[in-house]
Design a protein around this nucleic acid. Sequence first.
DNA 1: CCACGTCCTTGATTTGCGTCAAACGCCCGC
DNA 2: GCGGGCGTTTGACGCAAATCAAGGACGTGG
Lengths: 257, 257
Amino acid sequence: MTQIKDVVLRWSYPQAMSSDHSPGLSTTSEQFDRFASAILPCGICDRAFARFRSLARFDGAATGKAPLAKTGEDQIVFVASGATKLVAHATHGREQIVAFHFAGDLVSVPARAAHAYTLVALQPCALVTFPAAAFMLAARAEAGLLNEVLQRALRALDRSREKSIILGRKSAQERVASFLATMAERIGAPQDGGCVLDLPMSRRDIADSLGLTIETVSRQFGELRDLGLLETSGRSIVKLHDLAGLDARAGHLPVAA
Amino acid sequence: MTQIKDVVLRWSYPQAMSSDHSPGLSTTSEQFDRFASAILPCGICDRAFARFRSLARFDGAATGKAPLAKTGEDQIVFVASGATKLVAHATHGREQIVAFHFAGDLVSVPARAAHAYTLVALQPCALVTFPAAAFMLAARAEAGLLNEVLQRALRALDRSREKSIILGRKSAQERVASFLATMAERIGAPQDGGCVLDLPMSRRDIADSLGLTIETVSRQFGELRDLGLLETSGRSIVKLHDLAGLDARAGHLPVAA
DNA sequence: CCACGTCCTTGATTTGCGTCAAACGCCCGC
DNA sequence: GCGGGCGTTTGACGCAAATCAAGGACGTGG
């Protein structure tokens, strides 16, 4: 880490990005530091480090905005702060949220497939963005980095597969319970034997992620509340009283022996 | 490649695996050769090569069987020949197929998550299997190999995300059309301006993959047939007459300008 | 070639969730 | 503190797909 800090200090920074002036966002050096410490391996050489630094673009976004330029290229994005959703667009204005991301996450954003994709801010956020091809080229001889990126890709794949089960076979209540159980794990603050969630996504987002409608999500929150599993406060606070009960409602298999 | 062949010839083979006697399956050396040529980089050192060879286990399976031992560990599986499906199990006997794989594919098979997973043969197949932790340990300094595995993981992630859209927002007809369009791309044999599919998965598998029931899949095949888009012959042959028409029925966005 | 088991197709009925509409609540800006 | 816009909740009704049932087709083994 000392080495990395030395390198940082040796570099003069590119012109300030427009995102530098967004309220509450960190500077580009802080953002890159976060990327470097989370993703780049300890022993990476100066040359590679400099290459990544020169490839990095810094984007910030206010809630609901889509900060990434449409470059026609796949991109690799590090969420330095805040939270985002990856939205897939189908015909007739249909949208499906395929993933939520939080600070520290690395996201592969495809330029285009059978559907179009947009990365959208769930709350004010700072992003470190790389063109994917150039990133991969720079990374091609960096085993430690490739290992880190691979582990993250495999985790994202695991999550995506779990979503397939939810969307393909679960009832509305199971879907909502599943969503809450996952959020408890990822961003829950323990409290009184349960936990508290401060959800950055709206009911609409939750619905778009679960393949349901807003009304159905709201109804299921009500049913889980009537079962004593949770209480809500305002639009974003959810207190979960019984995580095991929620797991059971989610249709998760019991923990293996 | 010459180097790799030399190395192969230098090794004495472990005791024959039981799968060696399965009808129609290749020998373990052929299977490992396929793995090496598809996945291992050209310049890999003897030591690493030998390490992977010693980690490899060889499994074959008849249609419908699950060849992998329940080791309680994540596994990395190379499909040397045949085709497989990764089945996720939820409560109440519910199953969701999260992915199909064909010869040459590399599969990450999780030991366990909120759901249980089983890799099942769609047709007679030969698999080269590694414990995932040991595989990753052996691969940790092999940038070329990590790059190859990462590209494959990202492709699997793309596919899984596309499946989320299908399951989350598409109608039954769009789902079936999407499935057929994807299979045309992956295993279609061009014929008369369209293509022919010899599908290794049953209607049941298709339904379990698309979050539908057998009956609905059958009905949608009938509707697409009535639209002139396809004809079926037996249980596994599907002739697709109009791939563009199928794409439109799948709800895919028009190709970007 | 035939028998059998399993897969696939087809029709009728039921159901969970979507759609439509409107009232209520929250949060932000002035 | 207040007003307005937007998000959330709630109720009624409709619908695409699931469920149930049964007949037809296919593929394999003897």
